[in-house]
Amino acid sequence: MDFTMINIVIPTVKILIVFTVVLLSVLVMTYAERKVIAFMQVRLGPMRVGPWGLLQPIADALKLFSKEDIIPTMADKWVYYLAPTLAIVPALLTFLVVPFGDQTTFFGLLKHPTSMAISDLNIGLLYILAISSVGIYGILLGGWSSNSKYPLLGALRSAAQIVSYEVPLTLAIIGPILMANTLSMKGIVEAQSKGMWFVIPQFFAFLIYTACAVAETNRAPYDLPEAEQELVAGFHTEYSGMKFAFFYLAEYANMIVVSAIATVVFLGGWLPVPGLAFLHIPAIIWFALKMGFFLFIFLWLRATYPRYRYDQLMAIGWKFFIPVALINIFVTALLVL
């Protein structure tokens, strides 16, 4: 193979693998969510389909794909079709820069070592923030175009919530960026390989990031946009079938993205846990374990905490998270200088 062919084939294969793995992990995630929460509530969870209900996500997926695709009569057709796409495309695009491991030749399969990220942009973290800020339009426009009151209320809540929590989320990431002195995802992990993981010096930033990540993905206890007791199902009340599946996928893909960012920025990416390097576990397994831990926090929070009231949600975001994140930046900047 000549040079250009390699430049085309390897990224294409990487993209295919990453997207397949992401979609599969969404399936696993739905199963894990039901099981974990069931065990926390001393239930069994899904047990009917397959052994221990293992085939439940596949049954769910088949059910969603074969459902009738309903479009409300008064819906704005164009925007109604566009909204699920706008939700899922940014969620998947953010995986472009996530480094799942160090440079590797895949056991000598390739002549030159290739990066485990699809593309290693030198502004990777900014790119993720920029792309994920586009994801909100799927929710907003989906809620508006359904032409129904509950989706509209859900969309308005969601817009206010996501815009408010994006600020402390970004501010929380700035501390580690200052310490790593780079915006590249790979560079941040390499900076942690020299010292300690950023979760230790940036512990407050990590706490703020975790809380804001939960709010950004509209998960409990910040799931006001889809609070089922008040709003039926929030912004996707009128969606069914494939289009609903897209919103569902986007939500879980977003959870995986924020876990990946937390893993890279705070938990040392693909680096082994200090003291356990002698086990020779491959880098990608470490990455998956750390991501799994962060995703488990999502489920844990959901099973533990009741939902916030709306004014409490806004107050804690603006009056607590943002000032603390700013103070964290000041202190970090002083120490780095």
Binding site: I123, A130, V134, L140, L152, A159, E166
Partner: peptide, 20 residues
Amino acid sequence: VVQLLVYAGGIIVLFVFMLL
């Protein structure tokens, strides 16, 4: 990237909010 962050992430959300 700043264009995406400022316009797509901020300004147009304000517009949509106002429109709704």
